[in-house]
Every structure is written in structure tokens, then in C-alpha cells.
Design a protein around this nucleic acid. Sequence first.
DNA 1: GGTGGCAATGAAAACGTTTTCACTCTTCCT
DNA 2: AGGAAGAGTGAAAACGTTTTCATTGCCACC
Lengths: 327, 327
Amino acid sequence: MTIGIRDVARAAGVSTATVSRALGRGPVSEALKRQVEEAVRLTGYRPNLSARRLRSQATRTIGLIVADIRNPFFTAVSRAVEDAAYAAGMRLILCNTDEDPDREAMYLRLMEEERVTGVIFAPTRITADRLAARDLDVPVVFIDRTGPPGAHDSVVLDNEAAAALLVDHLIGCGYRRIGGLFGSTSSTARERQAGYETAIRRAGLVPDMRSAPPNAAASELCVGRWLSEATPPDALILSNGLMLMGAVRATRSAGLGVPDDLGLAGFDNDAWTDLVEPGLTVIEQPVAEIGAQAMSLLFDRLKAPDQPIRKVTLSGRLVVRGSSQRG
Amino acid sequence: MTIGIRDVARAAGVSTATVSRALGRGPVSEALKRQVEEAVRLTGYRPNLSARRLRSQATRTIGLIVADIRNPFFTAVSRAVEDAAYAAGMRLILCNTDEDPDREAMYLRLMEEERVTGVIFAPTRITADRLAARDLDVPVVFIDRTGPPGAHDSVVLDNEAAAALLVDHLIGCGYRRIGGLFGSTSSTARERQAGYETAIRRAGLVPDMRSAPPNAAASELCVGRWLSEATPPDALILSNGLMLMGAVRATRSAGLGVPDDLGLAGFDNDAWTDLVEPGLTVIEQPVAEIGAQAMSLLFDRLKAPDQPIRKVTLSGRLVVRGSSQRG
DNA sequence: GGTGGCAATGAAAACGTTTTCACTCTTCCT
DNA sequence: AGGAAGAGTGAAAACGTTTTCATTGCCACC
């Protein structure tokens, strides 16, 4: 009932093989090619991608698995990956795990069953570790996060350096009891925490670190409690944009003034961060570059499956705004 | 080389038909079912979805085509659709058109070639009109936007009423020269504009309407110019969250005070809108409900292809904040 | 005790493509 | 002049499943 390549072949008076070649690549005379194209138009033929993929054993699809699509960081990265993918004639499957290892496992299995060409993945620590042991049968590039060294290609921020940059900046602004709230699920948060701790210690201060699920609600809750304790911090570093938003909310609820009562700084130069008063001091990540590099790593891996594991590290840029400028 | 269902069959000592039935639904004895499951585990078999879809002629996939994934409204709706889809055992293909009719056409063609079960689509006016004429061979539900009446199922906000709500509120706050900036690409923006105009006229005021591409940059530019003209408005209504953000930026650049110099109100209760000072008066859309309703409409359509076209209209909620409260 | 129906199973067809293989013409080289 | 090489084409195999169809037991019913 649905029109297939044989209908086109009949309409064009050629074999199905010729139609296939005319539509794809293959030696076909100009005359026949035109006939086929005409027949395609006439019949309204639409190739069946499932059949095509099955036969050709090439899905031309890459999977992008991110932790939270509501996080502007990931939507920005997604856009970059999408653009690169389509430029290379590849389709994209976008999945969203909510930082849940079960959903990660489910989506990874899906990727295998889809026989995707490759996967770009921002894993939780749990899944990153698991993946280092049992290998997938599809090439995967980690993005924003890493697992054990040498297990997978990855493109990440220089998180330790970036966190240290924030700490040093806050110290330079006169803050001394600088707390740090870091996401509980990712290697990235861990690295930022490590960078924070060494920078704090290097300055002779004492670290005060906590962790929470990397979303606005959890962060707001945690920061709220923190600020009402006996010896609250005089500045706070948050490990991503959502958590930074939660912290701003908690600060407002507590009636604290920024930057005088509390200095604030964090990661991700999200669109809203310069609209609040005072503007938020943040580390800007090269989101487009991260996405583009991830695709690039993936393609290289596809071309040369046995080449050594690569890790691309990009630098963040400190954007100073009012939230850290004690008057 | 890759392991298929025949390998599992061999390992379990049964036919491929039995394996298929054991994995899907079909009458298989408990004993064999267990054998098959064991064999699947042993061999590490992963079904090939392309083959499955080709043979079964059921992709169990729905396509979601949105205009701008960076718009929090659409990411929120996406989440709702995704949840509903996976709850129903369906996969989701998420596409992003950037309000570009060419990309819309490309993705629609892709949906046909993927043989998706159904499509949920936020079209530009151009594509919505085109689609009313030539019909797709896949069921489609419009979301957030509509085309010509009676052509497609849709779930939308009561945009006219919502816009009128905003206008009436601003008038009640004492504003008189209320301008409206509306997106140039969607039916939704048109409806909001219509609602704005009738509400303004009803109050005996004169409408002042402009339109721009529905993104922050274009809005900022347009509002910036507008505010520097001879008789600038004393209040502004923006037709979505991104445009509202652009307007806030332009207002700041112009050095105008909100709400005293300029009242501000718009659509979409995005996370940042209550963090800026003053908070922004907005229409909150029932995003989760929109996504859920869309899936529901789609499933109903699949069950009963010939039932009459349905249009679900949801109401927005006015969230009053400081940006419209002239002191 | 035959017969009809049903559950469980396997062999083989079918899904809609691409690709292999074989074949026919050209054209080009020696 | 006599291949060799290569371009253009069609017939048929192949991709990995699900589904149809046939077969076998088994049980229940008259």
C-alpha cells in the first residue's frame, strides 16, 4: 500500500538497483538519473530509513545523552552538537537522564539497540565508572564530565583551575569564610571541589564544602540551612548555573545583601546572571566549542578506532560582576 | 559478526520464531521463555531496532518539533512530552527548527522517512498554512500554535484572553500608552496581538504594535529603538519569555526605571523572571499540561484516525509582580 | 473413540532497502 | 586487431527481525 522503491522503479522503467543508485551514490547515467528523480516526484516516494539502515548497516545517527535539558549549559551544548551533526549528515537522538543512573543505563541500552554510530554522553560518576569496566560496543565521547582516566575520549573544562580562579578572586575581594556547594553526581563537581579546596588551603583558609543534587531546588534548600547556621560563610561558590540560581533564591529569602553580607560566585554564564542585581560573577564555559570538540573527537574515533584515548581540556573565562565586589 | 536472534536461538536450542515470541508477546511455555532469557544473557544479545521496525511496520516513535530549544517554555513542554512518551513505551525524536520554514520542511520530511507514529509540532505560520493544504501521511498535533481551523488537532493557550488579561492589568495600574511587541513567526503571537488590540480598543486607548523575530536579541534591538523615539510607550507587553528578557535588557540600557518610567509585562513564567528587580509580571502557561494534552490528543488520533479535529485551549494564569506596579 | 479446537513450536516468507554479482557495451591501450 | 578496463545496468541475495502458515500434541466434547 505504501509506495516503495519498486514502485519508483516501475514508474521510471528501470530496476530497483538503479533507483537506489540514482538516489544514493553510484554510477548512473545522467538520463536515467533524471528519469528516476522524475519518478520519485510523481510517486511521492519517501525512502524508508529503517530499511535503509538495516541493509546498509549504517545508521548515520549519533546519540546525545545529557543530564538535564533544563540546564542552559546543556541546551547550548546540544545546539552545537546538533549543528555539527547535521553538517556531517548525521541525525541526532537527544536523551535526558535527570542524573539518574537507571535512566542512563536505559538510554545506553537504547543507543546500542539503535546501532547508533556514536554517543556523546554527560554521565554521572556512577555510570562513568561502570562504563570504564564493561565496554559498550559503540564509541562514546564524554562531555563536561570524565570517568577513570584513559577509558574514554572526553572534552571537559579545566574545572580545578576555574574553581581556583573563583576562589582567588573572592579572596582578593576580601572574603575569608568562603563556602563551596558542589553537585553530588558528577566528576565535574568533584574537580571543582578539589580546585576549590586547594586554592582555599593555599591561601591558608579553611575549606567548607558541601554537596547536593545539582538543581535549583536542592541548592536553595541547602544554602538556606547553611546561611542560618551559627557561623555562616561570608561568600559562596556554586558548581553550576542551576545551583547558583537556587543560592540566589536562598540568599533573598534569608534577607542577606549581596555582595556585602554574602559574596556569590559560580559556574555558567547563563542569560539571567547579568540581569539580577547585583550581577553574578561566574565562570563562562565555551559551550559551542565543547559541543564542536565532542563531535570532532567522535569523528576521529570513528575514523581510527584504535588511536589512543584523548582528553580535550578547555579553559573557562572569569566574568566578574557585582556579586563578588564587596564595597 | 554481530550477534543476532539466530545466535540466541542456537544457544537456547529453539527456533528464531520462539526467541522472537519469548522476547515480545506471544504464546511461549514458561520453560522455553526462561531458556531464551538465559541465552539472551549469555550471548549479550541486543535487538536491532531497525530490523524490528522494518519488519513490524511499527516504529513506536513520535517526533517532537519545536521552534527553539533554548526557550524554557519549549524545554519544559519537551520534558512533559518525553515523560508521557516513555510512559507509553514510545521513543522521542526531538528536533529544533529555529523558526526556519526550511528546517521545518526538512524535519517533516525526516519524520515521514522515519515512519514515525505521530508528530507533535510547533510550526511557524508559513508551515502551518502549507500543511493545511497538502496533508502529511503521519498524524500531527500542533502545540502552542495553530494553523487554519479544522486542519489539525492542537493544544494551545487562550492567547487572546491572556493578552487581554495583561492589558487590563496594566491599564488598571495606570498605564495608558501601552505598546505591544509580538513574535513575527507564530499564530500564537498573532493571537496575542489580537487580544492586545481589542483590549486596548475596548479601553478607548490606541494600540501600538510591532513585531520581531521571537528571540532576545531581536527584541532588545527593537525595544531599544522604540524607547528612544519621540513618544515612547509608558508600558510594554512582550509575547514570550525570550522577548521579555530582551526588553529588560533594552530598558536597562536606556536607563529607564521599571515600573515607574516603563511598565513591563509578558508571557512565560520563566525561572529568572522573579529574580530580577523588580520581578516581572507574566502570564504563566501550564507547560506540563500542554505537553501531556498533546500526547493525549495524538494517542486518541491514532486510535480513531477519522474522528473530528479537536482543539484544546488552556488558560494562562496572571502572575503579578513589581514590573507593572507603578508606585 | 473420533473430531474439533487450542497451545506451543518451527520453517519459511516478508518487511524495503542496498549491495553483490554477472553481464553488456564502450573505450582505451598495446 | 585483440584484449583489458571500466561504466552502466538488472537479477537476486542480504540485512535481522516478526509474522504467517503448517505441524504437532493434547484436551474436551459429543
